[in-house]
Amino acid sequence: MNWIRIIQKTGKYITLVVISFLSLIPFYILITIGLSKNVGKLKIDFSFLPDFHFVNFILAWTKSGLGISLVNSFVITSGALVILVIFSSSAGYSIARFASPFNRTILNIFLLCMMIPGIINTVALYTLMIKIGGINTRWAMILVLSANSLPFSVFLYTNFIRSIPRDVEESAIIDGCTWFSAFWRVTFHFLKPVTAAVAILQGLGIWNNYAQAVFFLQRKDVRTIPLAISMFFQQYGANWSLMAGAAIIGLAPAVLIFLFFQKFFIKGIISGAVKG
């Protein structure tokens, strides 16, 4: 009886190790290349230890101008997220709590548009951006990307708020709040999990956005990380170590933020994304 359990358990742990290994191996390879002394060719010596040639990173950093792109990505992502959270949480509140034909229509439009990927609009959006002078500006990019993420976020907030009991606001109303202020004072604080889910899911999408950015951010000084990396790769295609160095710099912020907040991240998605 006991040995069956042991076999089951070891089998399970082996599976888990395999799964983890599958997910991690490309990162290991990337780091190995990034730290490799060889520039053009690949040398595999099965020592499984990188060369620790950190110069590649410094070179990649100075040659790529990733610094300004990091700033751009941060500004655009945080700006879009702030707008997204404020707009979609209040929309979700109104839709979830106060049923009216008006709110129902808005929700249905959002639900329908959830199915439309952003790229479909790109050309028309492009002409709009030219008209409003939004090409190569961070503010317009913030607006475009937050608008693109609105449907899914409104959907998440609406579902989540529906699952919170109404009493939460009602006690505040008794204290003399309006429904509007009750939301900001009370309900909003209950929304942390779903806000985390929105911030993670949509924030990553915005941070990694390429399809829109490649159109709207042409100038060097407004480029985001994915753009800068792709430009860099186009230019230094032969130099794998340099490319890997740049790739590591480019993916590091997202990975670090994720690892730092991973508990909050995964919990947030789990409690925020699927309700009702």
Partner: peptide
């Protein structure tokens, strides 16, 4: 105000 809070997003 609470009835039209979806308007900015829209």
């Amino acid at each position: 105000l609470h009835k039209v809070m979806a308007v900015p997003a829209f």
